[in-house]
Simulated scan of single mutants.
Amino acid sequence: MLHKVAIIMGSMRPNNICTRITKWVEKTIESFNEIELSVINLADWKLPFLDEPGIPAAHPYQHEHTKAWSQRVLLEDGFIFITPQYNWGYPASLKNAIDYLYKEWNGKNALIISYGGHGGNKVAAQLKEVLEGGCKMKIVDKMPGIVLSHEIIRDQIRIDLDKHFQPYAQDIQQAIEQLIAALNAKLSGKM
């Protein structure tokens, strides 16, 4: 069975490294033929800051951008969240995109990949709490954190990500294996 999985890019900063990390992750997991990957760049969605008049869990959506976002999320079986760690937390744009919806996230499987000068373990823990506790998603145990050296942060355009990120490839692949196992278990009714 082919599972539809979307990578959600958590950074909307112009010239962000998230775009390059996402491409590297795609390349790192391209051999997993059990998943059909797509990428959701939140910058393409232009979601205003929580402009729905009602609470997502209790009211129908009023705005077309919310209805479109809802339909996009419903298409997927699972998600890979790739997010930077900003000041020990995740970007407001990612929280906003999550908070637009509720039922659409419920029961979906997900994987969190974080990155930052310290690897992103704090952002991964925060995001896991929101996704599991608030959105009722199922997050895999392995949450790879990519440490960005000062060299990468300073000069990210000229950095060879394959070379610098190679030590993280096995963690990413193991996390994808966990995500696929969770998706298979859900499909067979074991979760």
Rank of each mutant, 00 (worst) to 15 (best):
L94F: 06
A169Q: 15
V130R: 01
E129K: 05
I7G: 03
Q178Y: 10
I176K: 11
L2I: 15
T83A: 05
H59E: 13
D155F: 11
Y115G: 08
K136E: 10
I157A: 09
N109P: 00
I35M: 12
R154G: 06
G117V: 08
D162R: 07
A58R: 10
W24Q: 10
S93G: 09
V130Y: 01
D171W: 12
K163R: 14
P91F: 05
K27I: 03
I17C: 01
I139E: 08
K136C: 05
D141I: 07
S188Q: 14
G10Q: 06
F81S: 01
P167D: 11
I35T: 11
M9D: 00
K138H: 14
P167T: 09
L75P: 00
R154L: 09
K186V: 06
V39A: 02
H3F: 15
E151I: 07
D162P: 11
I7F: 07
K136S: 10
W105Q: 02
I98P: 07
Y100E: 09
S31E: 15
L127C: 04
P91G: 08
S31D: 15
P53C: 09
K103T: 06
I7A: 01
V25W: 10
P14L: 02
D44R: 01
E30P: 02
A125G: 06
Q174D: 15
G134D: 03
D171C: 10
V5P: 07
T83W: 01
L42H: 07
K103E: 08
L42P: 04
G78T: 02
L187G: 12
M137W: 07
A68W: 00
A185Y: 10
L2A: 13
V140M: 11
G133N: 04
I80M: 07
L111Q: 13
M143I: 06
V123I: 07
G78R: 03
Y100H: 11
A124S: 15
G78W: 04
L47R: 04
V123Y: 00
D77C: 02
A124C: 05
G119H: 09
Q178D: 15
D99G: 04
K4T: 03
Y61A: 14
E76Y: 01
K23Q: 14
L50S: 14
A181W: 12
D44P: 02
Q156R: 10
G89T: 15
N109G: 11
P167R: 12
C135E: 12
A58L: 12
S114E: 01
K190Y: 04
A57V: 05
V25A: 08
L161N: 07
R154C: 05
K67N: 04
K163H: 12
I180K: 13
M1K: 13
V147H: 13
A97R: 03
E34R: 14
E177D: 14
E52K: 09
L179K: 12
E36G: 08
L111I: 05
M9N: 06
I153A: 12
V147P: 01
H63E: 12
E76P: 00
P56D: 05
I80S: 03
E52Q: 14
S31H: 15
D99S: 05
F165W: 10
E26V: 03
D77R: 03
P167C: 11
I29L: 09
E177R: 15
D44F: 02
G189I: 08
A124Y: 04
W24V: 07
G119D: 05
V147T: 15
A182P: 09
